[in-house]
Design a protein around this nucleic acid. Structure first.
Length: 336
DNA sequence: AATACTACATTTCC
DNA sequence: AGGAAATGTAGTAT
């Protein structure tokens, strides 16, 4: 439900309510004297530190959403709110370029078994992920602790190393929470570097998200078609519903909720020509309910391969020239 | 949490 | 209007 109807007036007025400011819970604990380095998020799991958003972007983001959401629920089991755009126009480009330039990404490879045969998958997009499921949280030193007790979780609790959401992404998360009334503990970031990057039809219907998950999905950069179609069922001979094509443009946000994930599929198909080759960043916020969700997201969005970072001179993602190959840490120390 | 390739049909572009 | 290009769909291989 829209908690805060927004009009043009609201766009030019001060932010309705002071939104919760995200203090960088992920500040570094450098051994710098007077606490230098207040301008970046560091964590022992990060290949390198992530700068905070420039103040100008933060201030303008406080005016988001830039438009009222349009409800799309005129088909069975479909429940969407479409913001065109959500992020104010005057910072879309800067935010896109900031995130593409500063974030680390991965090109995840993994194998799946389908029946008898094992198949190697090269994920056709760049990915990265931050967050931890509701059973845990990060303490002030960046350690994963029990969500309620605050005590350390056993070493073997997670096979992965959960990463706190950096300030530059977490601000958007809290603003989206306040605007939608939904709660999120994960940020998945995809970079579709060209029209040849894609994701095939699927649903975000994993059990660890609960039965009717709300997922907020942002677009920055190139416009890409977002296709949706009702899941085929025995009684559905594809007559009751018709597929959707949403041309997601920079700054847009689509909130998927209700039965959308359980009954509909969505995809970002490959595209030729057009602006797809300029690159699109997609950020999705979700809420994982159990530890298995955390394991799943890190396996498929970080994996164990090399780190990539945007190379502005070559204008493409390049393997990060970190120390000692990969897997190195930022200057922050590893919690005991 | 599949994706790529192919053949062929259909739609869109110019 | 009509040919080229892009897109959509189904089947298959990995």
């Amino acid at each position: 439900m829209a908690k805060r109807p927004q009009t043009l007036d609201a766009f030019f007025a001060p932010p309705p309510a002071k939104r919760a400011r995200v203090e960088a819970s992920v500040t570094s604990h450098e051994d710098q004297p007077d606490g230098a380095q207040k301008d970046a998020s560091s964590h022992y799991t990060y290949p390198f530190a992530l700068p905070h958003l420039p103040p100008a972007i933060c201030e303008t983001l406080n005016f988001a959403p830039a438009t009222e959401g349009r409800v799309i629920n005129d088909q069975p089991d479909l429940d969407l709110v479409y913001f065109e755009p959500y992020i104010p126009k005057d910072i879309q480009r800067e935010l896109f370029e900031f995130l593409r330039r500063e974030l680390f990404f991965y090109r995840v490879k993994y194998s799946i078994k389908r029946g008898p045969t094992e198949t190697q998958i090269n994920t056709p997009r760049f990915t990265t992920v931050f967050g931890v499921d509701v059973t845990s949280r990060f303490d002030d030193d960046g350690r994963v602790v029990d969500a309620t007790m605050g005590g350390p979780v056993p070493k073997s609790t997670y096979k992965c190393d959960p990463r706190p959401i950096p300030q530059c992404v977490d601000l958007l998360r809290t603003l989206t929470e306040n605007a939608t009334g939904c709660k999120f503990n994960f940020a998945l970031v995809n970079y579709y570097s060209s029209g040849n990057d894609s994701i095939s039809y699927h649903s975000d219907d994993e059990k660890f998200l609960g039965p009717e998950p709300a997922i907020a999905s942002f677009t920055l950069g190139a416009k890409r078609d977002f296709l949706m179609k009702h899941k085929p069922t025995p009684e559905n001979h594809s007559s009751e519903t018709k597929p959707l094509k949403l041309p997601l443009a920079s700054g847009d946000m689509i909130l998927m909720k209700g039965l959308t994930q359980s009954r509909w599929l969505h995809s970002i198909p490959k595209r030729k020509g057009g602006e797809a080759d300029k690159g699109r960043i997609n950020i999705t916020f979700r809420r994982a309910m159990v530890k298995a969700g955390t394991e799943n997201y890190y396996r498929y969005n970080v994996g164990d391969g090399e780190v990539y970072q945007w190379d502005e001179s070559r204008r493409e993602m390049r393997p990060w020239a970190g120390v000692a190959g990969q897997r190195s840490y930022s200057s922050a120390s590893v919690p005991a």
